[in-house]
Write a protein that binds this DNA or RNA. Structure first.
Lengths: 244, 244
DNA sequence: CGAGAAATTGAGCCAACTCAAAGTCAGTGG
DNA sequence: CCACTGACTTTGAGTTGGCTCAATTTCTCG
């Protein structure tokens, strides 16, 4: 059941997983069929629509076909921290099926096409299908690894290093599912959202981007980001070996 | 097999889990027996000894009886980010059994008494015992929730708020296993390590602690921390409802 | 008591923040 | 087609939180 503030127009074709999906990749036809039947129809969500509401006791599992969505925490004083960003092909909410923990709201960036699996359906899959449970656990493990990488960024990086490393990471993830090439990708976040992701002021983010541009490390035209000099950019994003 | 830089003196009695242990609590006698047999003897580790080496392909699962230990990442330029702190009763490394991901080094604070489960033993337990596997998954989920809370702290908190929130969290965790009471606990970290945990300079941490002291929010005498005014301290540690 | 480690303090600097204002852009309606 | 509007981005000026480095004091332990 989609949320109230999405426009709910169902798209006709079913979930069509992108290459590189952690949930769908490498499954045999039988299991793919089960997954497809578990998902509802594709729906379209407006920019900033909520795909999961804060503290939803039965959060759906959402697979993105198009567009970005991020999980965030809203602080009492209005500040916000974005915990993770979902890109096309990513499945959000598998982690809520195993292990519990708080459920955070999920919002689209510029809008998205997505498909939901109801919480009850996903829960029984976890109970009955080992292969599905395994993938949910793997998702949880990746989430944790990502959170810890973000922790390192926030704790030890300068603004420039943090921004560079996020840009590199976004490019890599998009390239893996064929949505970026030639060191270019579309950034489906406003600078304000980007700032909430890296934990800085939108103003300071803007200046940081400007500096990276003036050094010819990246170019940004509208929402099109081009990584002009990946080696130097990686140099700027000082992180321990094995990280980007 | 313990690591080279611990002193390896085996203590005679076996693992003696503390109340509040996520791994041991609420198990029936049969399973407790299995767990006890899976663990090696208790050993004593010096201050700053490594319980797990960086990128160990077969990291042991370590249960602390006494003392603190933290998981950290060492950056190329010498900086360090502490990812999580293990307290007495905590089991470190369950997460490595499910889901993969990088293995980070684990070091004691002022020293510890601990007991290891060999990686091979733990792996077969995960494979063969559902209850054990469940607890490993739960551990992973807690780790992620903790990492995300830390993320919020680092991204959105001032130094004072971050330090206050860490002190409150440490107290709560210690109190749950009976190692703190009356708003007092022993802080088994140097200020340098504490600084690496909250992502700031030791100097700045020191000033921040001094400020908290001068406001009569906490008192620190040697390693003994006293939370003098918990309500105000919680006020200082501005985080969204449900967080500390 | 002496030596090394940890904690503390001081002075100066730079990164990141705040607030205000102006510029850009896409969409909307006259 | 143009003017208007609201959202987003960019720039400027000034402030401050957090950092660096050096020096001193306190603690711990042999």
């Amino acid at each position: 059941m989609p949320n109230a503030d999405t426009d709910n127009r169902a798209v006709l074709f079913p979930v069509r997983p992108l290459p590189g999906s952690w949930l769908f990749d490498g499954l045999d036809p039988d299991r793919l069929k089960i997954l497809h039947e578990a998902h509802g129809p594709q729906r379209r969500a407006e920019a900033r629509a909520h795909l999961v509401r804060a503290a939803d006791p039965n959060p759906p599992v959402v697979t993105l076909s198009t567009g970005w969505a991020f999980r965030y925490v809203q602080l009492v004083d209005g500040r916000r921290q974005i915990l993770s960003v979902g890109l096309p092909g990513d499945t959000i909410g598998l982690d809520t099926l195993v292990g519990g923990g708080p459920v955070y709201p999920v919002q689209t960036g510029r809008g998205a096409v997505y498909s939901e699996m109801a919480h009850t359906v996903a829960t029984s899959l976890v109970r009955d299908a080992d292969w599905f449970r395994d993938r949910a656990v793997k998702a949880l493990a990746r989430d944790r690894a990502d959170a810890e990488r973000a922790l390192i960024r926030m704790g030890q990086c300068t603004a420039e290093a943090g921004v560079a490393s996020v840009l590199l990471e976004l490019y890599d993830r998009l390239a893996r599912c064929g949505l970026a090439a030639g060191h270019q990708f579309k950034l489906e976040l406003t600078q304000e959202q980007f700032a909430d992701l890296v934990g800085m002021t939108p103003f300071h983010l803007n200046r940081t981007l400007t500096r990276l541009r003036s050094r010819d490390l990246v170019s940004i035209a509208g929402d099109l980001v081009t990584l002009l000099n990946v080696p130097d950019l990686e140099q700027v994003a000082v992180l321990p070996p094995g990280f980007k």
